[in-house]
Design a protein around this nucleic acid. Sequence first.
DNA 1: CTAGGGTTAG
Length: 762
Amino acid sequence: MASLPSVAVTRTLKLDPEFRKHPTGSPAAEKSQSISYQKNQTLPHLDGSSKLRSLDFREALLMIKEGPEKVQSSCYVPLLQECIDRNSVLDAQIVHGHIMKTGTQEDLFTMTLLINVYAKCGAMENALKVFDNMTKRNVVSWTTLMTGYVHNLQPALAIQVFQEMLETGAYPTNYTLGTALNACSLLQSVRLGRQFHAYIIKYEIDFDTSVGNALCSLYSKLGNLESAIKSFERIREKNVISWTAAISASGDNGEATRGLRFFSEMLANDIKPNEFTLTSVLSLCCTTLSLGVGSQIHSMSIKLGYESYIPIANSIMYLYLKCGWVSEAHKLFDGMETVSLVTWNAMIAGHAQMMEIVGNDLSACKSGYEALSIFVKLNRSGMKPDLFTFSSILTVCSRLVALEQGEQIHAQTIKTGFLVDVVVGTALINMYNKCGSIEKASKAFVEMDTRTMISWTSMITGFSQHGWSQQALQLFEDMRLAGVRPNQITFVGVLSACSQAGMFNEALSYFELMQKEYKIKPVMDHFACLIDMFVRLGRLNEAFDFIKKMDLEPSEFIWSLLIAGCRSHGNSELAFYAADQLLKLKPKHTETYVLLLNMYLSAGRWQDVSRLRKVMRDEKLGKLHDWSWISIKDKVYSFKPNDKSHFHSADIYESLENLLDRAKSLGYESLETLEITDEDGEKTPSSTAYHSEKLAIAFGLLNTPNAVPIRVIKSVFMCRDCHNFVKLVSLLTAREIIIRDSKRLHKFVNGRCSCGDYGGLI
DNA sequence: CTAGGGTTAG
């Protein structure tokens, strides 16, 4: 342990006056005495204590309550430890009473322990009373009191205690400073942290392991990764905790890969990871989706004996789910002997994450319903869901477009009081938005007590996706008036609102505002909004000019927007140029190739067709799976194009034919196209008449009461033809139809779609 | 002194 030089420190460390005065006034000044204090120290085994130790806790308490006899002070240690484990203030008070009766209150060590017990049980008033009544104190008692305030999230009081300790002339140890640094990170105070750091440097103890560890973690929590790493590097003898601090600092500050490098460096230095290290590394694997490293950690944790350590098991499960290895995650979950609420939450959140990553396909749908059933099991298990559970499960509902379940969960969040949590509230808004219930979303938004930037952004995006451009822009202005700083994503919402409404000048001025006033660098999504706007307006050459002027390399998505625009506004020369550019990017999505194939097919460019087929084979891209699903009364029904497998297939087709006829009377004509339907690239004539969403809608209309909105999820993006058709169906049947395809949300009402005939429609 | 689960995107 590095000891501090005996220098009066009061004047070298000027603390902010803003911290409240210690409530009980200044404690008696007393010189500290040196006592070594270690958590796991073995205590002398004395007569009185061995008797107590052999007894059950309750019996021991009883004995202590009744027996006035004097016992060795060390016999209180296991009893007090037990009080912490049971988190029981009442038991602690019983032991406390005995201590007072037997005169043990003179014992510094026991009284300090008692402070710690009260502090850990959340009874700081009691801890403070003990401290104030102590006849002597040393730096450990001061430090313990500080630690108590930090533990109970009262960092300002911890600093106050520190200051008073200095006034008494006591010298802080490295533990004291470590605790003070923790208080600084809770206070999020860079200024105070720097003052402590200066002090630490002055007394040359920044190389000390525990001080260095605390500094590293402080800077990390203040968002200053470089200083955190520097503090770490200055540590002379780095222990597991030092390495773990560096690893998690990297992860917490968005440099997961760097964290993984620290981990391998640590192993190269022959430092054995502990359970904390492994959980930190696993969370890095979660952000980098490193399944390989993750499964290595899995075997390492088994080898090191952490197999049943719940946080590790939770992280591994979560990682496997995020990486799509569902069966292994479930195997782990089923094999766990004890689970915590976090385990349930990790399962639910993991399924939600997996849905996000795989997109709108069958496995995502299955995952979503699996998450809902896990949620039901959790409720039955007797454990109570918390705010993490609710925000994840609401996200699941939004990705499933499952309004009924979402509404039930909304009710549960009200009943349990978790709706007041801003993240839960935001997830709720998002759920209503994604389910096409913009009115309920905005009601929930208005009723929120507090809103974060994300809440505003969600609502702005929701308005924009529903085609309510004016409301989106108005809300953006309200947000600015409320002094909330928008981010990148907020501007995606704002720009797409402008683009929908064809508000050309507004779009450009918001684009400028974003860069000039908010110093936000435009990313691909912002350009995509603007290109979409040009395309919608049919100003293809301007779209192309804009693409050329971007200082980013245009993405797949940008080129496919332009191609879509060219197809609908008839500019084949530009379309083929864009197609060439798109192909140079080696697109990874089958959808993109199908778009291009159809383009070449309809132009009769057979050479390009076979060239594309070869690329698709080389890239090992599969077939395009167009399917739609609809959920009715807790059951999910899925449809492929031309699907005749459904039990009521005849009824569905009859009803669809009827709709097609009625639509034709309004001028609709379904397209006959050639599509690549098998791996050899056979050209098969095909009609858009029986695309999957049409079947799902026909089924939905047959099986739900009038006026109930129809909600469909589609695995690939809608074609223009189906889009036209569904607009007419919404008019003919007076039903709201909500379709979420792989690109965006479409809400059809009275012959119009919320996307305002999005420019990316093919 | 170090750790596991949550919200926004074309």
